[in-house]
Nucleic acid binder design. Sequence first.
DNA 1: AATAAGATGAAGGAGGGG
DNA 2: CCCCTCCTTCATCTTATT
Length: 598
Amino acid sequence: MVWVSDKDDSDNDNFSWDTDEDDKDRFPGPSAGIPGFACEAGSSQSSFFCNFIAMGFSKDMVEKAIKQNGEGNQEAVLETLLTYSAIGSSTPEHEDVPNDFSAASDEDSVDDDLWSSDYSSDECNLSILVTVSDPVLEGLDFTEFATEKDKKLSTLVDMGFSPEEAAAAIDRCGLDASVLELADSIQAAQMAEEADGTGWSYPKVQYEAVGGSCNSFTRKKRRLLEEKRKLKRRKEYVKKPALGMDDAPMPISKPMIGFGLPYQKCITSRSLPEAAIGPPYFYYENVALAPKGVWDTISRFLYDIEPEFVDSKYFCAAARKRAYIHNLPIENRFPLLPIPPKMIHDVFPMTKDWWPKWDHRTQLNCLQTCIASAKLTERIRMALKSCGDPPPERVQQYVLGECRKWNLVWVGHHKVAPLEPDEIEMLLGFPKNHTRGGGISRTERYRSLGNSFQVNTVAYHFSVLKKVFPNGINLLSLFSGIGGAEVALHNLGIRLRTVVSVEKSEINRNILRSWWEQTNQSGNLIELDDVQKLNGDKLEQLIQRFGGFDLVVGGSPCNNLTGSNRHTRDGLEGEHSSLFYDYFRILDLVKCIMAKNL
DNA sequence: AATAAGATGAAGGAGGGG
DNA sequence: CCCCTCCTTCATCTTATT
C-alpha cells in the first residue's frame, strides 16, 4: 500500500515520517505503522470502515458511502467516496470525476494491487492522524452539489457530449459557466486532442441539437472551425522534417492533461516509433513552456516521441506545467493514494479564515525556487491596513498581483505569507521534512524543492510499471535532485532493487541518502555526482553488475529554459540546460549496451 | 564565509475585439 | 488577420546581515 512504511513498529519511536499533530486536518502523509491504533476512540467501527478512514476520507463521507453501497462492496464504496471527494471540492480550474461514475468504473482505473494484502491484512499500518475528517468536506451537502451539477451535466449529455467531457468542462469553466460556454470549452478540447493526433473517440456533437441557442454560439463555432483548420495546417507543418526550423511550434494539449487524468476517459494507446521502444523504459521531464523550438529538438533526439504535456494542478493544489517524453505504456494507469486535495482551502484549512472574498484563487501557481521577501508581505499588510474593507479596486489589484506572483497565502488579518518548506513538500507529494535537517539551510530547501518533480504526477505515469516489474526495478536516475522519481516508485509499492543516482548537489545527494535509510530500503543505492563523468565504460560496468537498467529517469536543468530566468534564458544550448544532451547520450549508451548484451 | 533579503523583465500563451 | 490586455514562469545577481 502506498503510504505504508517499510519500517518495523519497534524502531519507529525516534523517527517518524508522520505529519505532526497540528497537521491533522491536512491530507495524510506517509505514515509508519502505529501499534494499537484504533479507528476512533470509543467507537466500534469495523475494520472495513477504518480502511476508508485511513485513506483520508471523512467519517461522514464513509458512513454515507457505506450506507449507499452496503458493507460488502469495497470497490463500490471507494468509487462513491472518490465521487464525493471530487464533487465536494468542485470549483473552477480543477479536475473532477463525472457524476455518472459507472461510466468510468469499467475502466478498472484503480489497480487491484492498491487493495492488496498490505492494507487488509495489516491494519496496524493505519495513520492515526487521518481519523480526523476534513472540516471542509464535512460541512458540504453533496447532494446539493450533485443536483446543481447534474442539470448542466445532463444538458450537455443531451447535446451529445460524453459525461466525462461534460464533467471536465465544468471543472475548467466553473459551475457558474453557461451551458454554451461549457459546450464551447468541450469543443475546443476535442480539437486540441485532434490536433495532437490522438483524438478521443467520442462522436461529433450535433450542433443543431442545441436548438434555438444564440448566434454567439454559431459565431464561436465558426471561429473554432477556423482554428481547427489552422491547427491542421500547423500539424502538417510540424510533420515535415524540420531542418533548421527551430521555430516550428510544438502543439501543447489543451487542457494540459497529457493522455488523460485518473478516473477519466483516457487515451489508452499510442504508437511509438520503432526506435523508441525499450528496453530500457525511459522518462524525461522538463518545463512545458520552454522557448520555441526546444521541445521539437528534445523530441527529435528522444526518438521522435511526442511530449506529454501535463499540468500538476490536476494532481495537487499547485500548478506545475511540465512536459514528459517517455516510452512507458499508458494503459491502466492508476493514481497514487491517497489522492491529495486540489484546492488551497482543503490543503491549508487555516488560511480559509483569513481569505478575503475578493481573492478568488482556488489553486496556487507554480512552486518556484525563491520566495517573497518579508518586506513585501509587510508592504501588503500596510497597504490593506490603510484602507477600508473591502479595499479599493486599485489596492486589490496590487495585492492580488503580488499574491499570484509569489504564491502568497492568507495567514492572518491583512497578513499574507509565502509557503513554508514543509508545506511545499506536502504539495509536491514528498514526506514531511523530506528536505529538513542534515545541515541544509532554509533557502537551499526552497531551491531543492522548487527544482523537483511533483510526485503524484510522476507516480501516475510510473504506475504501469508495477505489473511489468513485480519483483522490483533497476533504476538509473539522472539529475535525481531530492529523489522525486525514487519516492514516486517507492510510494507505488514498486521495489527499488538498484538505484544508480547521479546528482551534482551534495545537499540533494544527502537528502536522497537520508530518505533511503529512513525508509529501510532493501536494495542498493549508488550515488554519483556528475552525469558528464558517466561514460560508456562506467555504464557497461554497472550494467554488467546489475543486469541492466529497467528505467532511465531524468529531468535535466531547466535554468536556461524557464520564463523565470531574466538573465540567461538561452534555450537548450544554455550552460545548464545543455546537459539534456548528456541525458540523451547516456540513455542511448544504455540502449546500445543492453541491446548488445541481451 | 555563509546565508538571507531585495531588485531585476521578457517570452509566449490565451482570449477578446475589430 | 492584427492588435491589445492579461496572465504565468523548476531564476540570477547584488547587497545586507549574521
